[in-house]
Design a protein around this nucleic acid. Structure first.
Lengths: 108, 108
DNA sequence: TTTGTTTATTGCAATATTACGATTAATAAA
DNA sequence: TTTATTAATCGTAATATTGCAATAAACAAA
């Protein structure tokens, strides 16, 4: 049915999955790589750097913004995107909390 | 077109996205939570614990296995699933390497 | 062998995602 | 105001994902 049954999972499970889902596309990883590498925000250079059409990049930026990883500031006709440091820190903590839930023993 | 253009991204970007994508569904997070919590492997108890049909759970297990997070051992008629410690460690390192790529400054 | 138990696979319907052309919106510059 | 530039939105086609009923496969036990 293509419809995830979110209601049967905990909030935490849904939230972690939502974050991971957004990171689950190479274009969005590439966008983050680019923004982080330049240590400053980037506008439409992403379109040139990554080989995807402008509407596609814009769509990916929207998803990254939706979960709070990045934020955009309008500067004239262009928009400056950069990591939303505060949220990004929280998101990383959340992910790390999950990643560190290690089993101490294993049976197989 | 629904088709990700993997060829325009680096191997690392594709790999990180592939891992994140698998973690991008609450059912798979719930499965991992369950397996980790019991500190041992689990067989079909997942179907009872999580409210999804057996074929659906089986499908999610398959995906987790595909990226190497878990492994399954046949035990009679049932299958014992548990974290593939070695791979899981590598996957976590890969994710952490990405998560730690922080910008030192920000412009907006 | 037959029966029961457990898991995997197949097939399918419903929905989601990805990508992009065309267009719109917003602003800057002439 | 007109024109150029940049980014967002709309609409749509192609493909992927999710979920499950039905079935098959694999094995244990009777």
């Amino acid at each position: 049915m293509g419809l995830t049954k979110s209601e049967i999972f905990t909030d935490e499970q849904n939230e972690i999955a939502a974050i991971a889902k957004v990171l689950g596309h190479p274009a969005r990883i590439a966008i983050l790589d680019f923004i982080i590498k330049l240590k400053s925000c980037v506008c439409g250079d992403l379109v040139k750097d990554i080989g995807l059409a402008q509407p596609t990049i814009s769509q990916h930026l929207k998803e990254l913004k939706k979960v709070g990883i990045i934020k955009g500031t309008v500067e004239g006709t262009s928009v400056c995107y950069c990591i939303d440091e505060e949220n990004w820190e929280q998101i990383k903590n959340r992910l790390n909390k999950f990643l560190n839930k290690n089993p101490t023993e294993n049976c197989c």
